[in-house]
Write a protein that binds this DNA or RNA. Structure first.
Lengths: 155, 155
DNA sequence: CTCAAGTGGATGAGATGTCAACTTCTTCGT
DNA sequence: ACGAAGAAGTTGACATCTCATCCACTTGAG
C-alpha cells in the first residue's frame, strides 16, 4: 500500500490536458449548436441517425444501445422520451415477446433530415477544417489506436 | 435556401466517427472508474484539482468556472452540492460583496489526495500507454490545433 | 417437461447539466 | 453624485444520465 504513484510526466500531462480541453470544448459547442439549431439533443441526434441509417428504419432496443455504446437503461429512457415527442415509436417484436423494436416515425425522419446538414456543417467548421487532410487522417489513426488499446483493457 | 449540403467525404466521416467513439468510450470509462474507486464524479474531481492546485486553495466562483470552461450556473450548482457533502466551503469576498470564494476543506484535500493516484493510473493505462511518446505528442499537437482553430470561430 | 439461469427491457430515485430569469453590487458616463 | 448598464451568483424548472432493481419471457440442462 501507499506506493509512490506513477505521476504523469510533464509532457504526458500536457498531452492529456490538451486533449481533454479540446474534446470538452468541441463536444459542448456542438451539442449546444444542435440544440439551438434543431431543438434536439446530441442523444436524440445519434439515435435518429442510427435508426434511419438502416434499411428497415427499425432496430431492437439493445442493438441500438450497443451500436452507440450506451447502457440499455439509458436507451430505454431516451426512447421513452423521444416517443413522447413523436420522433420514434415502439413496436412489438414477434420473435421475442420480451423485446421491442424502435422505429423512426415520419416526424423523426423529417427531424433528422432537417438537422443533419446544419450539424455536419458545424462539424466541418469546428473540427475538420482545423486540420489538413493528412493531419486528419493521422488524428483518426491515433484515435483508432486508443480505441483498440482500450478494448484489450479490462473495465 | 435548400442548397445541397456539403456532406463529409468518406475519410472525413470515418475520422470523425473514430474520434467520437474513442472519446466517448474513454471519458465514459474514466468517469465510471472514478465514481467506483473514489465515490466522486468527474465534476467533483476537476473542481477539487483546480482548487487545491492554487497556492491559496481558494478561488472566485467565476474564475473557477472559466478555468474549467463551465457556465457559471453549472459551477454554482456543483459548488452547492459539494458544500453539502463537506468537500468545499463558501467564503465571503471582502473586495466584492456580490462575490464568493470557494475553498477546499480538509476533507476536500483528503478526497483528492486519495483519488488522484488511482485516477492517474487509469489515465495512463487507458490512454497514455496506448501511444508511443511520439504519437502522444502528435496527438497533443493536433488537439491543440483544433482548440486554437475553435477559438477563432464564432459560437 | 420443468425449473434455474440468463436476457431484453422498464422503472424509480438521485446526481448532473442547461437555460432563462432574478437579485445584488459595481462601474461608468455625464 | 446618480441612474443605467453590466458583472457575480443564485435559483427553479426541466432534460438527462447512472445505478440498482424488478418483471416477463427464453433457454438449456437433466
Amino acid at each position: 500500500m501507499n506506493e509512490t504513484p506513477r505521476w504523469l510526466e510533464a509532457e504526458e500531462k500536457a498531452a492529456w490536458d490538451s486533449f481533454i480541453r479540446m474534446q470538452e470544448t468541441l463536444i459542448g459547442r456542438l451539442s449546444r449548436l444542435l440544440q439551438a439549431d434543431s431543438g434536439m439533443s446530441a442523444s436524440d441526434y445519434i439515435v435518429l441517425v442510427s435508426l434511419t441509417g438502416t434499411s428497415e428504419g427499425r432496430m431492437r432496443l439493445l442493438e441500438l444501445a450497443n451500436r452507440v455504446n450506451w447502457e440499455k437503461s439509458r436507451m430505454s429512457h431516451q426512447v421513452r422520451r423521444m416517443a413522447k415527442r413523436g420522433l420514434v415509436a415502439r413496436e412489438e417484436c414477434p420473435d421475442d415477446a420480451r423485446g421491442a423494436f424502435v422505429v423512426a416515425t415520419p416526424a423523426g425522419y423529417k427531424a433528422i433530415e432537417d438537422a443533419a446538414p446544419l450539424h455536419v456543417e458545424h462539424v466541418r467548421r469546428l473540427f475538420v477544417d482545423a486540420l489538413t487532410p493528412n493531419q486528419l487522417s493521422t488524428f483518426a489513426r491515433l484515435s483508432q489506436r486508443v480505441s483498440d488499446h482500450m478494448e484489450k483493457q479490462p473495465d
